[in-house]
C-alpha cells in the first residue's frame, strides 16, 4: 500500500509533468523518423519486414534501459541533493518500500514507452512474420531489463549519493551493455565475443529478438538467455536491497 503510494507520488512528480512528458514526445518523434525511413527509403525498405521489426525492437529496448538508468540515478542521490530524502525517511514507509515505489515508477515509465512504441511495431511489422510473438518477447524482456538496469542504477545512487557520479557510472554500464552493437559480426563470433554476448543481458535480449522474429525459433532456443536475464534481474534487486538497507542520512 505504502509502496503503491510512493509509486503514485513518483509518477505524478516525474512522469505526469510537462518536463517528464517531453521524454515521450521525443520517443515518438524518434520512432516516427525511424519507421518512416524504414518503410519509405528505397535502400532501407529492401530489408526484410522481420529485420525492420527487430531493429525497432532493439531501439525501444535500449531506450527503455536508458530512461530507467536516468530514473534510477535520480532516485536517492537526487533526493539527497534536493534535500528531500530526510522528509521521505520520516514517512511511515520503510526504506525498501520507498525503493520499491521508485522502482515501480521507473517500470511504469518503461510501460509508457512500450505503449507508445506499439503502433510503430504494428506498422513496421505489418505483413511480416512473428510480429505478435516478437511484441510479447519485447514486453517480457524489456520489463526484465528495465527492472535490472533501474534497480542497479538506484542501488548505485543509494551507495554513491551523488547523482552526477551515479549517472556517469550508469552510462558506462549502458555502453558496456550495448557493446555488441559496436562489435562486428566476425568479432562476436570469437570466443570473447560469444562470452560477452552470453553474459551481457542486453545482448541476450537482442539475440532473443533476432532468434524469435527473424529465425522463427521456439522458446526452447530462448530459455537459456531468458534465464540469464532473470538471473540479472534478481541480482540487481538484491543489490538494490543491500544498498538501500545501508543508506543513512
Amino acid at each position: 500500500m505504502k509502496t503503491a503510494y510512493i509509486m503514485q507520488k513518483e509518477i505524478k512528480e516525474s512522469i505526469l509533468t510537462p518536463k517528464g512528458f517531453l521524454w515521450y514526445i521525443l520517443t515518438s518523434i524518434i520512432l516516427s523518423i525511424l519507421s518512416y525511413l524504414f518503410l519509405t527509403n528505397s535502400e532501407l525498405s529492401l530489408l526484410d519486414q522481420g529485420q525492420m521489426l527487430y531493429m525497432i525492437m532493439n531501439f525501444i529496448t535500449a531506450l527503455g534501459i536508458l530512461i530507467g538508468l536516468v530514473f534510477g540515478a535520480d532516485a536517492f542521490a537526487g533526493e539527497i541533493e534536493r534535500g528531500t530524502l530526510e522528509a521521505l525517511f520520516l514517512s511511515p514507509a520503510s526504506k525498501m518500500e520507498i525503493a520499491m515505489g521508485k522502482l515501480g515508477a521507473a517500470i511504469s515509465n518503461w510501460g509508457i514507452i512500450f505503449a507508445i512504441s506499439l503502433p510503430y511495431l504494428f506498422v513496421v511489422g505489418k505483413g511480416g512474420q512473428n510480429v505478435l510473438t516478437g511484441i510479447v518477447y519485447l514486453l517480457i524482456l524489456g520489463t526484465l531489463l528495465a527492472i535490472t538496469f533501474s534497480a542497479f542504477s538506484m542501488g548505485l545512487s543509494a551507495r554513491i549519493k551523488s547523482m552526477k557520479n551515479s549517472l556517469i557510472i550508469s552510462f558506462f554500464m549502458f555502453l558496456l551493455a550495448g557493446a555488441p552493437i559496436f562489435l562486428s559480426a566476425a568479432l562476436r563470433r570469437t570466443w570473447f565475443g560469444r562470452i560477452l554476448d552470453l553474459i551481457n543481458p542486453f545482448a541476450d535480449a537482442i539475440n532473443t529478438f533476432d532468434s524469435v522474429v527473424i529465425d522463427s525459433q521456439g522458446f526452447s532456443y530462448q530459455a537459456g538467455r531468458v534465464a540469464i536475464i532473470c538471473g540479472y534481474t534478481l541480482l540487481s534487486l538484491w543489490f538494490l536491497k543491500r544498498s538501500v538497507s545501508g543508506l543513512e542520512m
Binding site: S35, Y36, S42, P119, V124
Partner: peptide, 23 residues
C-alpha cells in the same frame, strides 16, 4: 519494394501530435 508510406504516415505524424496534445 516495401514502400508503404500510406501506412506509416498516420502513425508517424499522428502519434507525436497526440502525445503533444496530452502534454
Amino acid at each position: 519494394l516495401r514502400l508503404n508510406p500510406n501506412n506509416v504516415l498516420p502513425v508517424a505524424l499522428g502519434e507525436p501530435v497526440l502525445i503533444g496534445i496530452v502534454f
